[in-house]
Design a protein around this nucleic acid. Structure first.
Lengths: 374, 374
DNA sequence: TTGTACGCGTTATCAT
DNA sequence: ATGATAACGCGTACAA
């Protein structure tokens, strides 16, 4: 059926209800009211361009015919604006909502970006590599914000190919993109120095994945050297550097494939099973540290008397644990806000500037103490 | 990083500027290769429709000219599919990521919906009312999933106006939509009966907002009667009904405008300041219960000796608290999965069936006990 | 207010 | 088999 088949307005309304495939469009309304399509469009988008009376008539007619308003997709096509910010995650959405560090950051990002009529399009990743390139290619978005992807994530190639502006949070370093990160190396250094100055000499690392290959377990030197996650790399380096100041060189590392609490527990069990047993654990996140707390309790070790545990992030949970968690604070809210602002700037046509690096600080609580003289 | 990495983006920018802002489209490629637009489209979407050689030539040319692939918006316009599921929240995204019950559900929903090339479009709400109608009107989505909105949320009118399928999670009841909810009344009943059978006779309720007007503080009978959140209404009814079985009729209620832990603490302080002091608190969520635990500790009351506290949801945090929290379990993962499945079904053209109601159960832990004989 | 030229693809249907 | 033609899809924006 072509528009020519429509003889009159009344007929059309009839046709509409009969023919379900045919939704009313701007043209339908224009025809019915007897004005042009442009005028109907103006009624919705520029009410000041026409008389109130005409506008009311148009809106009323639209309602009567069940016109749902200008189609968002068509509007996007015409305006060349998708009206959404895509957020690229390393893993499934599962992580987005269960990892507090990510949640808090995302929340802040969302409220920053939200001002305006923009939505937040979440693109879940697969296997720590980030979203599939095809997902990125099909996403209706004006700008991409990538969160903590490995150095060689194919998703980032897809973003570049689409030539949309990119904001990278944490990692990796992508030339030509805006970036906000935290002083991971410095934070790790602080944590290690804290333990060292407390007198610990046998310290182990409970860390994130070094490379997105799904491995979890003890990490040897080769894995550390070839790590493809910048954050993990920098934090390990910071830990080792800080421990090195105290002459500590032999540092076991357990690598959790994801920041999952259960894996943290498993890793801590392994590390605490080493002989001689470490007297302190450097955990790359509070969540991993929570797992470590659980493991310690299960092994009958008391924290911090038998084992000191230090986290990273300073998420709210760090204050609720027993004992409250000594940790490295990063400003997750600020990180999200900056990322959102950068996204808006890029949308406005700004060129990306140098990366923003947020500071970190040591928050001493009750999960660390000098080692007991055993 | 190799020098090549640095050159890549710059090179592309160069191509773009040559074209004087005119980005390549399907036509550009078609013209260059000397085939029709349709053939180029097929090269991307139906590789089997043309010879491998021609396809390779097309793809190569596309890459050479910096063609980013078929434009997602144009594709959506043509296919009449946005390729996204919109998720409507009552409040800002802040809540989405900080409320564990929501996070877990959303996570599950996301992974259900994720299979396929769909994204999840988050539409944050304002003032507990849900997203602004204009946000809904402009969202590029094929289906809407509304989470826990008040009975008269304007966002739902906007969804209906757009005539896109709707899945409602928890509340409200919207005719013509699919729905998944939990047995809120039954859960509340279980909680109240638990306390009653333990011997408690002075019980108070620490609850969610009854109406989206930002009020927090003591709730009188009028507010309860006119509540516009179904879940709050049903739970209060369930609580009162269960308590009624033990002859308890005078039940103070404190209403938290959001499920925030700080508000939970504030409410608990108020309730625990009443004289005679309640011996037990019915909390509408684990998060509120956490706040109550904090308040009790600050008031020097020990749980459960001085005060019994029962939560709702059975989020992971319930097991970590001191003492571990007695609570009502609802299957949040299942709830999300069902909601996702319903969304996919509706996308497939199915008609919404009757609402799915998920069961609840009492999880007794250590935060409830018989009242001390004071 | 209106006419109308885009925006960018998809997908029958048709031709070789 | 392969590829071409052309008809949509639905608005926006600018000149008239």
């Amino acid at each position: 059926m072509t528009p020519r088949d429509l003889v009159g307005p009344a007929t059309y309304a009839c046709v509409v209800s009969h023919d379900r495939g045919r939704r009313p469009t701007l043209d339908t309304i224009a025809l019915e009211v007897g004005v042009s399509r442009a005028t109907v469009s103006n009624a919705y988008n520029r009410p000041d361009q026409l008389s109130t009376r005409l506008r009311d008539r148009i809106i009323a007619t639209a309602e009567r015919l069940g016109y749902p308003g200008p189609d968002p997709t068509a509007r996007s096509l015409a305006t060349q604006r998708a009206g959404a910010v895509a957020f690229l995650l390393g893993q499934g959405l599962s992580s987005a909502f269960s990892d507090p560090a990510l949640s808090i950051m995302l929340d802040s990002l969302a409220s920053t970006v939200d001002s305006g009529d923009r939505g937040l399009l979440l693109l879940p990743g697969v296997d720590d590599l980030g979203p599939r390139p095809s997902s990125v290619a099909r996403a209706q978005t004006d700008v991409a914000v990538a969160y903590s992807l490995p150095d060689d994530s194919p998703a980032l190639d897809a973003v570049r190919q689409r030539n949309i502006p990119l904001v990278v949070v944490d990692q990796p370093v992508v030339p030509g993109s805006a970036r906000v990160e935290v002083d991971d190396g410095g934070g790790a250094l602080l944590a290690a120095q804290h333990l060292g100055s407390l007198g610990h000499r046998r310290v182990a690392i409970l860390g994130f994945a070094l490379t997105p290959d799904g491995w979890h377990g003890p990490a040897d030197a080769a894995r550390v050297t070839s790590a493809r996650f910048r954050v993990s790399r920098d934090r390990v380096a910071g830990y080792l550097s800080g421990l090195g100041e105290f002459g500590i060189t032999d540092v076991p590392i357990w690598e959790a494939s994801c920041g999952d609490q259960l894996l943290g527990r498993e890793g801590a069990r392994w590390l605490l099973g080493l002989r001689p047993r470490p007297t302190a654990l450097l955990c790359m996140s509070d969540v991993l540290a929570l797992g470590a707390l659980t493991a310690a309790a299960e092994l009958g070790l008391s924290v911090p008397a038998d084992i000191s545990i230090i986290g990273f992030d300073d998420t709210p949970a760090a204050t609720w644990t027993t004992p409250p968690l000594t940790t490295i604070r990063q400003d997750l809210v600020e990180k999200g806000r900056r990322a959102g602002e950068l996204a808006l700037l890029l949308l406005d046509g700004s060129r990306p500037g140098p990366a923003t690096t947020l500071g970190v600080s040591l928050i001493p609580r009750a999960s660390t103490a000098p080692p007991s003289a055993d």
